[in-house]
């Protein structure tokens, strides 16, 4: 017992020290981050740029100064890139394919699609294009990070068709990169909007929070989830065993809803859930106010 009593304060002292070290480390990290941020802000400010320019004309210690101005340029370029990315949701960049056997000397054009969801920028989607066709400037999708639920291959076949062979008498197909990018972005945004609205429905039905208002209703909704890859169909399950399926268009207009109860179709619950709504967002609002 005595040894226990001695040990426990020792242990706690060790624990205290450990936690102190951990907190100090995290403090160091955040301070470093702060320092970086301040440096970045300072280096790109207008006054710094002026000082750099005036002192570069005098040119005393050129190597340090050059490094500094190089950093400033880089940071400025990055700032500009971020601005473009935040405002125009499609941006392009160039990459080099590291594969030594890559076509076209590894020149790759990257398209970057910014998508926002829940008032946050998601990880952008990338589509890399290259020119694998001999004697042709036609582009082809090389690599991409677009999920499978977006029909990228169909869009690519429509807007970036491969060059026609010589013995083909069809009119040469034209590639339309900007249309491809625009339609792809539209698909991406629509997909995210659909998944977001399903999230809204869930939180409106009190499924997201632990103790929501789910208890207040008589027959609470047990689950709402996307029923297919493209999130165009929504599965609704009630706690009393009714199940429903709601189909919406790409843009979120309600097409149809069917609920199966114990005795076949249950039109009453459909009416209860969607009422006069035309768009899926209205259903979420109805659920919220119910």
């Amino acid at each position: 017992m005595a040894s226990d009593e001695i040990q426990s304060p020792e242990l706690s002292v060790a624990d205290q020290l450990d936690s102190e070290i951990a907190s100090l480390r995290s403090q160091v990290e955040s301070l470093k981050q702060e320092l970086k941020l301040q440096t970045a802000t300072l280096i790109t400010s207008e006054s710094t740029r002026q000082i750099l320019q005036t002192s570069s004309t005098r040119a005393n210690d050129s190597s340090r100064l050059q490094e500094l101005s190089k950093r400033a340029d880089e940071q400025n370029a990055h700032k500009q890139q971020c601005l473009y990315r935040a405002c125009a949701s499609i941006t392009t960049f160039k990459v080099r394919d590291p594969d030594p056997g890559a076509v076209d000397d590894g020149k790759v054009l990257g398209l970057r699609f910014e998508v926002m969801s829940k008032s946050r920028f998601l990880r952008p989607y990338y589509v890399m294009l290259n020119r694998p066709y001999p004697n042709s400037r036609h582009l082809r999708v090389h690599r991409h990070t677009v999920p499978q639920c977006i029909p990228l291959s169909g869009l690519a076949a429509r807007h970036l068709p491969p060059p026609t062979a010589k013995d083909d008498y069809d009119a040469p197909k034209k590639q339309d990169l900007s249309k491809f990018a625009r339609t792809l972005r539209r698909e991406l945004v629509r997909y995210h909007n659909r998944t977001a609205v399903i999230g809204d429905l869930r939180s409106a039905a009190g499924l997201e929070s632990k103790k929501g208002k789910a208890k207040e209703l008589k027959d609470p909704i047990a689950d709402i989830s996307a029923a297919d890859a493209q999130a165009k169909q929504i599965r609704v399950e009630w706690s009393d065993g009714r199940t429903g399926r709601l189909i919406m268009t790409d843009d979120g207009d309600i097409v149809k809803m069917v609920v199966q109860g114990e005795n076949g179709q249950d039109r009453e619950s459909v009416k209860q859930l969607i009422g006069e709504s035309v768009r899926i967002e209205e259903v979420a609002k109805r659920l919220e106010s119910a």
Partner: peptide, 25 residues
């Protein structure tokens, strides 16, 4: 469709998200 070296573009970890955000100045 982003295997090998291209996987740097596909990661969705928090670190990737933070680093590849247009608001990350």
């Amino acid at each position: 469709a982003a295997g090998g070296g291209w996987s740097v573009y596909a990661g969705t970890e928090t670190a990737d998200l933070k680093a590849d955000n247009p608001l990350q100045t």
